[in-house]
C-alpha cells in the first residue's frame, strides 16, 4: 500500500474534522476522496501532504513513516483548488521551481520542464505569466509543477472545483488519460460524485470526519454500505421504508405480486426519461422510466400503478443495514 493512514484525528476547536480515520491507498491507482464539503476530506489530504498536522494517528508513505516529516521532505506533489500559481514567475519557471530548489543541473531542469510542458500541452506558453493563462491552463501548469519533482504521490485538492462545467469535463478526461500514461499514485478530493465515479479506480467516501465506505465505483454504486453513501452517489427514493434508486423501480399497471399500490400524481418528461411522483398510502415515491416504457404502460396523472424494486437492485434500510435484494 502506498499511503497508510492509521487512526488520524483532527479537531478545529469544537469541530471534529477527522475522527479516528484509517485507510489504505493503493500504489499506482487514482483514488478519490469523495464527500460533502466540510466532511474532512480536504483536511485528510492536507494531513497526508504535511500542510496540516494531525492531532492523533500516523501517516506512512511508501512504507516510510511520514507523520513527523515536514512537507518539504515528504516528496509529495500537491495541486491546489485555486492553482496557487507563482504569479511573478513564468510558466516554465513555475514548473522548474521544485527542481531549482533541489539544485538540479540547468540542462536537466530545462529538459524536464520541456518534457512536462509538452505533457500538459503548454509548451507554447512557456514564457507567459500565469495571469495570461485560462483557469484550465493554469491548473495544468500546476499539475506539471507538481509532477516535475517526480513525487511519490500526487495529491489534488478539488483540482477542478474552480473551473466551469465544460473545462471541468475536459480536464477530468485528460487527468484519467494522463494517469494511465504516468501511473503515479494519485489522490484527489472532490465533492462531485460524477467526477469520482468517472475518473477514480477507487473511491473513499468521507462524511462528518468518518469514512463511510471504500471501494471501486461499481462496488459503491451497486453495494452501498449505507443510506448516506447511496444517496450521495445518486438519486434515492423511499419505498415501504427502504431506500432505492428511482430508476430501479419496476412499475406495472397490474399487481405483479409483492408490489405497493399508488396513484400517479405528477409526471414530468425530461428528454428521454419520464419522472413520476406516485402517492402510496404511506408515502410519496419518485420513479423514473424511459419514454418508451412510459408510453407502453400508458401512465397519466391519476393512473393506479404498482411499484417494487427490480430484481438485484441495491436497496438500503435508512438505519444503515444492507438489505438483501428482493
Amino acid at each position: 500500500m502506498s499511503i497508510e493512514v492509521t487512526g488520524v484525528g483532527k479537531r478545529f476547536g469544537d469541530f471534529v474534522a477527522l475522527d479516528d480515520v484509517s485507510v489504505s491507498i493503493p500504489t499506482g491507482q487514482l483514488t478519490a476522496l469523495l464527500g460533502p464539503s466540510g466532511g474532512g476530506k480536504s483536511t485528510l489530504l492536507r494531513i497526508i501532504a504535511g500542510l496540516e498536522d494531525a492531532d492523533t494517528g500516523r501517516i506512512e508513505i511508501e512504507g516510510r513513516d511520514a507523520t513527523d516529516l515536514s512537507p518539504q521532505k515528504r516528496n509529495v506533489g500537491f495541486v491546489f483548488q485555486h492553482y496557487a500559481a507563482f504569479k511573478h514567475l513564468s510558466v516554465a519557471r513555475n514548473v522548474a521551481f521544485g527542481l531549482e530548489i533541489r539544485k538540479r543541473p540547468k540542462d536537466e531542469i530545462k529538459a524536464r520542464v520541456h518534457e512536462l510542458l509538452e505533457l500538459v500541452h503548454l509548451e507554447q506558453f512557456a514564457d507567459r505569466r500565469p495571469g495570461q493563462l485560462s483557469g484550465g491552463q493554469r491548473q495544468r501548469m500546476a499539475l506539471a509543477r507538481a509532477l516535475a519533482v517526480k513525487p511519490t504521490v500526487l495529491l489534488l485538492d478539488e483540482p477542478f472545483g474552480a473551473l466551469d462545467a465544460k473545462v471541468r469535463k475536459e480536464l477530468r478526461d485528460w487527468l484519467r488519460r494522463l494517469h494511465d500514461e504516468i501511473p503515479v499514485t494519485t489522490v484527489f478530493v472532490t465533492h462531485d460524485q460524477e467526477e469520482a465515479l468517472e475518473v477514480a479506480d477507487e473511491i473513499v467516501v468521507i462524511n462528518e470526519g468518518r469514512i463511510e465506505q471504500v471501494g471501486t465505483p461499481d462496488q459503491l454504486y451497486d453495494e452501498p454500505a449505507n443510506d448516506f453513501v447511496m444517496s450521495f452517489l445518486g438519486p434515492v427514493t423511499s419505498l415501504g421504508g427502504v431506500s432505492v434508486r428511482p430508476h430501479d423501480l419496476e412499475i406495472s399497471t397490474e399487481d405483479p405480486g409483492g408490489g405497493v399500490a399508488g396513484t400517479v400524481v405528477r409526471s414530468v418528461r425530461v428528454g428521454f426519461e419520464v419522472r413520476l411522483e406516485v402517492r402510496t398510502s404511506t408515502e410519496s415515491v419518485q420513479a423514473v422510466l424511459t419514454r418508451t416504457e412510459a408510453r407502453g404502460l400508458g401512465v397519466v396523472d391519476g393512473t393506479t400503478v404498482w411499484l417494487r424494486p427490480m430484481l438485484g437492485a441495491p436497496t438500503v434500510r435508512p438505519t444503515g443495514l444492507l438489505v438483501p435484494a428482493v
Partner: peptide, 8 residues
C-alpha cells in the same frame, strides 16, 4: 504552501 510542498 505550494512552494513548501515542492521542497522549499
Amino acid at each position: 504552501q505550494a512552494a513548501k510542498s515542492l521542497g522549499a
